[in-house]
């Protein structure tokens, strides 16, 4: 066909390998199996939207929602959980992060243990921590604050130890070569260069904690989620919707403040 040597032959498409077929088939089979297991059914999509229960979400009873004991006291408790756990978690994270960074770790044993423990802590979702602590030390905001403290510690050390890893090693070397011991060397050689990102990450953790503390109450760990859980049991979805609107307005405002602070820091 293509006799003219000036026109190049169209390159042929590479043939798919047998392995790709097998992988695709396995994934497809797994998907179907999973879909059956979660009772996936396309028609349920429409059933969900046409369910008459949506009418129970409306109208919002604002005179019930906008009261001190129903919304604002629990919301303040939520804020207090978030503030306390952020402060404690991030303060604890500072020394642990330095122990977890290859640049500033005092020795290999500390490095290894802190890393593996923190990885295990992070493998447990935050609400599992909340439920565990509620069982261990009692229902209420105290358990919630502890669980968020543990979780913010685990998340913060992951973020911040990577920043410490990437810090400029030269000031540290300079401090060491002038005879400084380990702690003063880290304090003057590394801390000043990474401190802005420490504060920025702390603010970020605060945003996460605000959001997490809203749902803590669903497992009995205090805050505004407790009210949602109670109203859920009474099937007062209109009240839940009203609560959610207030929560998200307030969470959004706090977040905007925190985000603008973080932008100025980094």
């Amino acid at each position: 066909m293509n006799d003219d040597p000036k026109i190049p032959i169209r390159p042929t498409k590479p043939k798919p390998r047998a392995r790709s077929f097998v992988i695709a088939l396995v994934l497809l089979g797994l998907t179907f199996w999973a879909a059956i297991k979660v009772s996936f059914n396309l028609s349920t999509f429409w059933e969900v939207w046409s369910n008459p229960i949506w009418a129970k979400f409306w109208p919002i009873p604002w005179d019930w929602v906008l009261t001190k004991e129903n919304t604002f006291d629990p919301l303040i408790e939520t804020l207090q959980i978030a503030v306390a756990s952020t402060l404690v978690g991030c303060l604890l994270a500072l020394p642990v992060s330095f122990a977890m960074s290859s640049l500033t770790t005092p020795n290999k044993v500390v490095y290894f243990f802190s890393r593996s423990i923190m990885n295990l802590v992070r493998a447990v979702p935050d609400l599992f921590w909340a439920k565990l602590l509620v069982t261990a030390i009692g229902i209420g905001a105290f358990a919630g604050a502890w669980s968020l403290t543990i979780f913010s510690l685990a998340v913060m050390v992951k973020l911040f130890s990577e920043t410490v890893d990437a810090a400029d090693p030269k000031p540290l070397e300079a401090a060491r070569s002038s005879g400084a011991k380990h702690l003063p060397a880290v304090r003057t050689g590394v801390l000043p260069t990474v401190f802005p990102s420490y504060v920025a990450y702390s603010l970020y953790i605060f945003e996460l904690n605000i959001r997490a503390s809203v749902v803590l109450g669903l497992v009995g760990a205090g805050g505004v989620g407790r009210v949602i859980e109670t109203q859920r049991q009474f099937f007062r979805f209109d009240r839940i919707l009203g609560l959610l609107v207030i929560i998200f307005v307030i969470v959004w405002i706090i977040e905007q403040i925190s985000v603008s602070l973080r932008k100025r820091l980094v």
Partner: peptide, 16 residues
């Protein structure tokens, strides 16, 4: 993105 999964589930469970 502003609404956590858990809250979505709270709203969806009565329906589904």
């Amino acid at each position: 993105r502003a609404v956590p999964e858990l809250i979505l589930a709270v709203v969806l469970i009565p329906v589904t």
